[in-house]
């Protein structure tokens, strides 16, 4: 963590000095006057289309912060999971904030910025009336899932649930509503977006999220100066509680990861509270 903090200080110093020997993407952005950010447009509340057709959500809001800091206009470019890294590689976007899980093989293709800005894990969607509070309570209960999901085995083996796995989320959600199972085990970020819909008003995501996998925002490989700037940006988001505030703004319960990161950076620099 110390190393990270040093990195942040270096990043801050660099971005303040604003000088670099070679022209890089930051110079391009300044020259263009526009920051192009790849975000999701189909993943509420992280990135979605509002009624007017604008891309809004938690990630577009973060992108706006970056544009404001750089003093340039923001252009949001919708990407999907299968093409997001290529958009960055080809220089069609400068920055990618698109719900991407941080994995080592991806770090070889794009420059994922440390620290991680967000995270998703495994949780369940269950009727509020069931009153579930612990994973262990799933013992002996039928729980819907998706065929091939890695946490099915864990839910079965460690918590004793009887997994009823379907081929897609639509089938599993229908089976949950029809009462075939007591809960649906899946990515918590997906479940959060369902909970914001009126159809799921009587349901909740009651358990402690497990198997957290961090999300990474990314710049193109070799854009070290922009990456360092973004490191500082992410630390600032965690430190100032910006991500927690955005979660609240978009109707998401504060995730344990965002809370933990906020606390972590507060502990490093408690003076921020004054």
């Amino acid at each position: 963590m110390k190393k990270l903090f040093t990195g942040v200080c270096v990043a801050a110093a660099l971005s303040l000095s604003g000088q670099a020997a070679l022209a890089d993407v930051l110079d391009d952005i300044a020259e263009r006057g526009v920051l192009r950010v790849g975000v999701k447009a189909d993943y509420p509340p992280y990135g979605y289309l509002d009624e007017a057709g604008n891309i809004v959500g938690i990630e577009p809001a973060l992108a706006q912060d970056v544009a404001d800091l750089l003093g340039v206009e923001l252009e949001l470019i919708p990407v999907v999971s299968s093409n997001r890294m290529q958009f960055l590689e080809q220089g069609r976007i400068d920055l990618m904030i698109a719900t991407m899980t941080d994995r080592n093989d991806r770090r070889e293709v794009v420059q994922i910025v440390d620290p991680n800005y967000y995270s998703s894990g495994t949780n369940i969607l269950a009727p509020t009336a069931a009153g579930l509070t612990e994973w262990e309570q799933l013992d002996g209960l039928p729980v819907c899932g998706i065929q091939g999901a890695f946490y099915n085995r864990k839910t079965e083996e460690e918590f004793g649930a009887e997994i009823v796995a379907f081929t897609g989320t639509a089938e599993a959600l229908a089976a949950l509503q029809q009462g075939t199972c007591v809960a649906f085990v899946y990515d918590d970020s997906f479940l959060i977006s369902r909970l914001s819909e009126p159809e799921w008003a009587d349901y909740e995501m009651p358990l402690q999220t497990i198997d957290d996998a961090p999300w990474g925002l990314a710049v193109a490989l070799g854009e070290d100066r922009f990456a360092e700037l973004m490191s500082g940006m992410i630390v600032n988001w965690h430190l100032s509680g910006r991500i927690l505030a955005l979660e609240t703004e978009y109707g998401v319960d504060n995730t344990p990861f965002a809370e933990r990161m906020h606390q972590l950076f507060l502990d490093i620099n408690p003076s921020i509270e004054r």
């Binding site: 009727p127 009336a129 069931a130 579930l132 262990e136 309570q137 029809q178 009462g179 075939t180 007591v182």
Partner: peptide
């Protein structure tokens, strides 16, 4: 469900 009994509709 733990100590509680949850009555629900099921097919």
């Amino acid at each position: 469900v733990g100590q509680m009994v949850f009555v629900s509709e099921t097919p």
